[in-house]
Structures are given as structure tokens and as C-alpha cells.
């Protein structure tokens, strides 16, 4: 167990070939790879809250631990995109960012109540026969 950055490791302990593609996208999140507040389901719908536009370019809301939060351009892109509700995978696809990165960014926004998350209903209660019939009718009409 050589401490990273010690002379023996020559500074190479932090990175290897496999780290490359991961480090770059996660630089956007300050190296954070997970959001601790929960899991964002792939198909959960994200919706920008009404206050988000007003707050987005100001310091974080009162009472939040970090009072001077400056959103990154990616945060603002998410807020713009999600004025119409969009699923997590669609946000990732639109931003052309890996899912893991997008989840961290969404966590930042959720912590500041700038987005709402509508989770898909649990499978047990859903879907009703009515919903499935609507799905069939919808596919037929394509």
C-alpha cells in the first residue's frame, strides 16, 4: 500500500490506461461519481421547477449548506432542457454526457430544489390495463 503521490509511485498510482476515459467526463463533476441523495432511475422524469429560472444564476437558496453555488453550463443546459419534462436517459443523450455524470449534475440541482423528479410508478401498481391499451393504440397509430 504505497500512498499515492509518494516517490515510489512516481505519481502514477492515480491513473492508468483505464482511468483515462472516466477521469475526463467526471472532471465536470469535480471528480464526484455518485450522488448520495438517492438513485435517479433511467426513466425518471426531470422537470425544471418554476423558481429555477429565477434562481439559476444566483447564489443557492437560503438555508443550503453551500451558500455560494455557481451552476456550471451543464447545469443550466439541464434546466433549459427540462422545462418540458424529460427522462434521465434523454437528458444524458441530449447533453452527450455519460449517465453517471448526468446523475451527479442532477443531484446538484435536486439538492437546490431546482428540479422535480417524477419517479416511474412501481411495477406492482403499474401499469393498469388502461395504460397498456393506450400504449398499444399509440404504437398502432405510429
Amino acid at each position: 500500500m504505497t500512498p499515492a503521490g509518494s516517490p515510489e509511485s512516481g505519481g502514477s498510482a492515480w491513473f492508468d490506461d483505464e482511468a483515462g476515459p472516466v477521469v475526463r467526463p467526471y472532471a465536470l463533476t469535480g471528480g464526484r461519481t455518485h450522488y448520495d441523495g438517492g438513485e435517479f432511475d433511467l426513466v425518471a422524469l426531470i422537470e425544471t421547477t418554476d423558481e429555477a429560472d429565477a434562481r439559476a444564476d444566483r447564489p443557492g437558496p437560503p438555508g443550503m449548506p453551500r451558500t455560494r453555488w455557481a451552476p456550471d453550463p451543464e447545469h443550466e443546459m439541464i434546466l433549459r432542457l427540462c422545462r418540458t419534462p424529460l427522462s434521465v436517459v434523454e437528458v444524458a443523450s441530449e447533453l452527450e454526457l455519460p449517465l453517471g455524470v448526468v446523475r451527479v449534475l442532477l443531484g446538484d440541482l435536486l439538492d437546490r430544489s431546482l428540479i422535480l423528479v417524477r419517479r416511474p410508478a412501481p411495477v406492482a401498481q403499474f401499469p393498469s390495463e388502461r395504460v397498456l391499451k393506450e400504449v398499444i393504440d399509440g404504437i398502432r397509430a405510429l
Binding site: 476515459p21 472516466v22 467526463p25 467526471y26 461519481t33 455518485h34 436517459v89 434523454e90 444524458a92 443523450s93 452527450e96 454526457l97 455519460p98 449517465l99 453517471g100 455524470v101 404504437i139 405510429l142
Partner: peptide, 13 residues
């Protein structure tokens, strides 16, 4: 065939 295809990338740790 039924929808516009969208790419999705995950780079998971």
C-alpha cells in the same frame, strides 16, 4: 423502425 434513435453513453465507475 418505430422511433428516432438516440445514443446513450455510460461511463460508470
Amino acid at each position: 423502425a418505430v422511433s428516432e434513435i438516440r445514443p446513450l453513453r455510460t461511463e460508470e465507475a
